[in-house]
Amino acid sequence: MDKRSNEPFWWALFGAGGVVAALTVPVLLLLTGIAFPLGWLPAPTHDSLYALFSHLLVRLAILVIVSLSAFHWAHRFRFTLYDGLQIKHLNAPVAFICYGSAIAFTVFAAVSLYTF
């Protein structure tokens, strides 16, 4: 009791993920999900996208966006399970599965972006 929690580590990732996702995901969805398919804006060609992603910084930015978003999901989903299903006794495995998924996803995204 009264020991300082390590929760700030996960909460910082959760908070950062929330900010990053709120700022970037609507724009990306609007562009790639609506504006380009409906022809509101000229869609970029494969070559130009390929050139864009060839920049290491762009790939790094994508990694940050998807990874932090995953951690945001993990934290929220953990508490949804924890409080929603009232599975207090399963706190450790639930946290392991949620954050583990986000970590696995981050590794997968990093490898994909690196070897692309």
């Binding site: 009264d2 929690s5 929760e7």
Partner: peptide, 15 residues
């Protein structure tokens, strides 16, 4: 105060 406020029973329970 941080010892008690930032414990698992403190602010981190709040969702």
């Amino acid at each position: 105060r941080m010892d008690i406020l930032s414990s698992d029973e403190g602010i981190w329970q709040c969702t």
